[in-house]
């Protein structure tokens, strides 16, 4: 199995090998892996890779999928240009 060719996060182009490298180093939470690889931080904000990463960590730790905590969800759900936010909130200043 060539783990390099198994894409987990399409938005940020993260493959399974990169994830296993971090797991082997002891980074076993989605929050840690997200910060180190930017997995789940692209346009879809983890909608596609979130479950795959959760399953992969569960397999590695030999625990149930739901025992792997999902990352904190923050606004916004997709990319928004700062210009749009500045212009859209002008009347508040």
């Amino acid at each position: 199995m060539n783990k390099k060719d198994i894409i987990i996060c399409r938005c940020e182009d993260i493959n399974l090998e990169q994830i296993h490298d971090l797991l082997d180093q002891g980074y076993t939470t989605i929050e840690d892996i997200k910060r180190l690889l930017r997995i789940g931080m692209g346009p879809c904000q983890g909608k596609t890779c979130g479950l795959l990463l959760q399953q992969e960590i569960a397999r590695y730790l030999k625990c149930k999928t739901e025992e792997v905590a999902l990352p904190k969800i923050r606004p916004l759900v997709t990319g928004v240009k700062l210009k749009a936010i500045v212009e859209g909130t002008k009347d508040e200043r």
């Binding site: 060539n2 060719d5 198994i6 399974l16 596609t48 479950l51 916004l76 749009a84 936010i85 859209g88």
Partner: peptide
Amino acid sequence: LHNEKYYKYHFDALIIATGAGEKMLAFEN
């Protein structure tokens, strides 16, 4: 976000009906 413009709304009640997204599979290529 609508047509590259950003709007804010206050609501009295909200119904979230965002549906579901497709699951993906991890395999080579």
